[in-house]
């Protein structure tokens, strides 16, 4: 009874919520996706020690702004989240997740080659990214952000992605174990 009496008030509260008033921007969502990918990914033990934080690195010109750095307050798989902005792909070998910004389209193959032997989950919204050897490519479909996964490169880089994640992917290429 009591909660029923409170109901109109709660509804009014929800209606007045600023979250509802301001829908998230594209890179705001993409920043959350980066963290979420980290939640469903598994790194080899030698690459990610227990005490290590999950390092999210952005290569190229940062499109996220403050949205990404805001993620540092959150945790993933019980680890702290750290955002890095390495200047070169070489420097990004120690990261767990690397977002390749659109500015690095020309150097894409070089970056991918640089990182292809390292357990680093590569994400980018560059077209043809997974075909180029990237792990997860972000696409926008019908104003909604979806993603494709190259299971071959994920496997070759000794990474594993959760089935839940795989189920949500728009497109899966490559085969596991390839």
């Amino acid at each position: 009874m009591r909660w029923r009496a409170l109901l109109p008030f709660l509804l009014a509260l929800l209606a007045a919520s600023p979250l509802r008033a301001a829908p998230p921007t594209e890179y705001q969502l993409k920043a959350v996706f980066l963290l979420n990918f980290a939640r469903y990914a598994t790194w080899p033990d030698e690459a990610l020690a227990d005490s290590d934080a999950i390092d999210i690195c952005v290569l190229g010109r940062d499109p996220f702004g403050e949205h990404l750095s805001g993620l540092e307050a959150r945790q993933a798989q019980g680890r702290a989240v750290k955002v890095h902005y390495p200047a070169a792909a070489l420097e990004a070998k120690g990261c767990e997740v690397v977002f390749v910004a659109a500015s690095e389209q020309r150097r894409l193959n070089a970056i991918l080659r640089e990182l292809e032997d390292w357990p680093v989950l590569t994400v980018s919204d560059i077209d043809g990214f997974i075909e180029a050897g990237g792990n997860i490519g972000l696409v926008t479909v019908d104003d909604r952000i979806r993603f494709d996964i190259n299971r071959s490169t994920v496997a070759t880089q000794h990474l594993r992605l959760s089935a839940q994640l795989l189920k949500l992917a728009r497109r899966l290429i490559g085969r596991e174990g390839d």
């Binding site: 969502l29 996706f33 469903y40 952000i145």
Partner: peptide, 14 residues
């Protein structure tokens, strides 16, 4: 069990 991922990735269809 299966509802967390769609919520995380805003996948209403799923």
């Amino acid at each position: 069990e299966n509802g967390a991922a769609p919520l995380r990735f805003e996948d209403v269809g799923s």
